[in-house]
Design a protein around this nucleic acid. Structure first.
Lengths: 352, 352
DNA sequence: CTGTTAGCGCATTCAG
DNA sequence: CTGAATGCGCTAACAG
């Protein structure tokens, strides 16, 4: 079905049909004829061709590192909220943490009918920068600082520092219970290629510890991927190598979840493996190893089933909202002056 | 940058450039000229226009109910795997469980450059059926049975039945501990509009219970959304209304997570709310209310931090794989005969 | 108000 | 091997 065929069937010109579709001048009489034909045929105009003409898709493409993530979903929720309110739709491309795929999808969106792109950033490589500099369509980066595009990011250093202070306080509290200096703090971070999480957050954390006179010893630091499984393995290694760990601080709540699992497994205090195991009550988790875990991100799922660990709440949804607003400002109003927005955080120390 | 400009700069015809881009006949000499110009200008052909011509996008659109879900992400992982292996890319549209948005995005994909659509289904309404019947591009439905499209779904009835049996056994075990018939079973389901989860799964569950001589009493049944929060509220209501519940079976692991939270809160056995709360050790979860929770979906996050609850493992990734294969079969080979695939399940009773 | 015309950027005939 | 010409489906002038 093309607009031409509809025009013929209705006995009008294709331009008339086009006008009918887009609210231009057309007599009530012809309007009716066209309406009828369209209804009968179920004709739907090709957005495809329309966009080729108008250069306007009312669509934004969002490149995300992974799909199954609370932080990502909060950001996209924010984006979607302002997009839909302003008549745009949102398409997602997930890269599964593969930088190559990220470039691929950015280029896909660049040459596809989207009016703008939002990149939820993790590692910003040279290729990323090159893309940002030369992109034909406006791009805004959420979650990482960059000077090559409008960006909106979180105060990871500050958050890390606050958490470092908190962790230090917890550690000292443990010392008063068990005896001075007999417990160490460990940290599970992520790749340094991720400037926000891998560098700023960790640097802040160290700084926070330091301000309380505590040092993070190299043997007590591991690097993990952004997955629970990876956090599990890193934590297990730590536990097996060092017997005096009192706190495991993790760069994300997802990693923290893996660390919790590792502690459960390691301390052999986890639930019976089979329901057939006698009449033991279903105690979901019983961790009395005394090892504490902290995270970043304020994951609701984790909070729900564990009662909550010390973590940091970032304004993910807000960053999505601001990101989309930024994007539409340049898409619709051609706003040219570059913008960088830094968002704050809130320590979430299980107060609720 | 258009192909025409490149042609001029290279001193050839636009057709030559097109051939260069698509591997047609072109002399090495001109090849070199074109290559150089393209490199200098950073020209990228408009996929947009190409597709308008060729009607081939090497792209599939996937409509998902939500982004932050382990089951959805497993399915899309399966889809992406076969898609990328066969030279396709994947675009996602999330509807946030809004049936209207679902139709909107289906239509978007229908008129945009995608070769096929995969719908991860929840409720299949009359409008959905209408769309499936008339869609210009091939559609396959994953997760729900429908006769209006190729589909691939799970044995929800069988899974429900198996879980019903298991729950019945657990209940009886509890009886022997606490005294005959003094404990009841409760169920938190979802809307009946979701045929797979809301109807089949629950029907199967009731059937499984029945085969063990146990009945699900109406007062012990609630309906929730597909969210943890909703599960929390439903479970809390149950706990407040009925004091003799021994088991809360939930239609999904996400709802189960909410139920666990509710039990923690209700039994006041959850962790201290503030780190300032004395030197209490960080015991992530301590549930000795004796109330057991079961779910469906084999959520890894839940398993990790709680040690696992009785649940059902569905082949989500497999359904994604098969779904994408089905789609490509009709996209590439014009396969016409309709296909329905039913996938099995595996009871996951915390054996690991 | 309406139809005719001319492209959007590209791939594909079809004669060279 | 190559370029000129045609049209994918649609919208935006333009002249009625």
């Amino acid at each position: 079905m093309t607009i031409k065929e509809i025009a013929q069937l209705a006995g009008v010109s294709s331009a008339a049909v086009s006008r009918y579709l887009n609210g231009g001048y057309v007599s009530d009489e012809k309007k009716e004829q066209i309406r009828k034909v369209i209804e009968e045929t179920g004709y739907q105009p090709s957005a495809q061709a329309r966009i080729l003409r108008t250069k306007k898709a009312c669509l934004a493409g969002v490149v995300v590192p992974k799909i199954n993530s609370e932080s990502v979903s909060r950001i996209t929720a924010g984006i979607e909220q302002v997009l839909s309110r302003r008549g745009y739709q949102m398409l997602l491309a997930s890269t599964d943490n593969d930088p190559d795929k990220e470039i691929t999808y950015l280029k896909l969106f660049e040459n596809y009918p989207v009016d703008g792109i939002i990149l939820i950033g993790t590692v910003i490589s040279a290729e990323h920068r090159k893309f940002l500099k030369n992109s034909k369509v406006p791009v805004v980066v959420v979650g990482q600082y960059t000077k090559y595009a409008n960006c909106i990011y979180h105060d990871d250093y500050g958050a890390g520092k606050a958490m470092g202070r908190l962790a230090a306080a917890e550690l000292k509290k443990a010392w008063t219970e068990i005896g001075e200096s007999c417990g160490k703090i460990a940290y599970i971070g992520v790749t340094k290629e991720d400037k926000a999480v891998g560098v700023s957050r960790e640097d802040g954390f160290r700084s926070g510890l330091k301000s309380e006179g505590i040092l993070l010893e190299p043997d007590y630091v591991k690097t993990a991927e952004f997955t629970m499984d990876s956090g599990y393995h890193a934590a297990l290694e730590l536990l097996e190598q060092k017997q005096d760990i009192r706190i495991i601080s993790c760069a994300t709540d997802t990693i923290a979840a893996g660390a919790i699992e590792a502690i459960l497994v390691y301390s052999r205090q986890n639930v019976p493996r089979s329901a057939a195991d006698s009449g033991t009550r279903m105690q979901y988790v019983l961790n009395n190893s005394g090892i504490r875990v902290t995270g970043f991100g304020d994951n609701q799922f984790l909070k729900a089933v564990t009662g909550g660990i010390p973590t940091v709440h970032f304004g993910y949804k807000t960053s999505g909202i601001r990101g989309a607003e930024l994007l539409l400002d340049v898409v619709e109003r051609g706003e040219k002056i570059p913008v960088e927005i830094k968002l704050g955080f809130r320590l979430a120390d299980r107060e609720n």
